[in-house]
Write a protein that binds this DNA or RNA. Sequence first.
DNA 1: CAGTTTGGTCAGGTAGCTTGACTTCTTGGT
DNA 2: ACCAAGAAGTCAAGCTACCTGACCAAACTG
Lengths: 148, 148
Amino acid sequence: MTDLTYQRPIPALLTDVKNAAVGRLFARMGDAGFGDVREGHGCVFGFIDMEHGSRLTDLAEASGFTKQSVGEAVAELERLGYLERRACPDDGRAKIIHLTDRGREAALTGRRIFAEIEAEWAEEVGAEAVAAMRAAAERIAELEGSGR
Amino acid sequence: MTDLTYQRPIPALLTDVKNAAVGRLFARMGDAGFGDVREGHGCVFGFIDMEHGSRLTDLAEASGFTKQSVGEAVAELERLGYLERRACPDDGRAKIIHLTDRGREAALTGRRIFAEIEAEWAEEVGAEAVAAMRAAAERIAELEGSGR
DNA sequence: CAGTTTGGTCAGGTAGCTTGACTTCTTGGT
DNA sequence: ACCAAGAAGTCAAGCTACCTGACCAAACTG
């Protein structure tokens, strides 16, 4: 703290900010009546096609997790009433994962809360700063992602 | 990707950027001959007093992990030759954790690599953008940290 | 209509943390 | 001077969120 030349390591810094966001998110999800949604469910809520549903494989591909991991999240969310799995009419192997009404409500609530969090950060440290952080992060993530 | 109104969730975004940094860090640590250093060792390297050493409890406090977790990292790093635990002259319960020469070398190498990574990002997306990202992240982390 | 690929599931394993219980030593009140 | 309370560190056990590997059934491919 007293060493002016010391730069906080970037992973620790980003993790702190992430945890701050996650903490706020789930606190408010709980307040909104979605206390049973966990962080690991993000691979579903974050990537599912809210209109037409998605396949497990596509959620796995998009989220970067394995089919098994996403499958477990889906199974739990189905048990909790956020999802339904329906047979795919075009492919006897596949199932289409659909949000239920409650699931749609939860997904929209989550998005709303994320927007709120960024808005609050904007009040606290300046809108330009938050926008700049997001923009830089998006560009870096994109660059690194394409290099994989 | 095609939905222009969709904002990538901030935790996923920050995690991607963090993982990009971590990936580069450990690849280069390996190249530099420190292939046995793992991410979990950051709670030591990131917070240890390089001159006078640190106590386990202080590392735990500073890093935000439990004493047990930090203790395990310290034990492993001691086995690997990066640290030494010496009895504390002022307190018979405590031990002072010191970096060995090799440990100091590793710590400095890590810091150098972090600086390199940010410099590379600066080339790719602009120095102002990276600086803005860091500045915003630091302010947010500080605000959230103080509210705990 | 065989051979390969793909969607999804089942089983088992592991890394990286946690909480809880404990020992040893220090500290502060009386 | 003593004893209660607290702090430093360790041991044991457990949990969570992932992973890899093996597999089945259905679908494409020639």
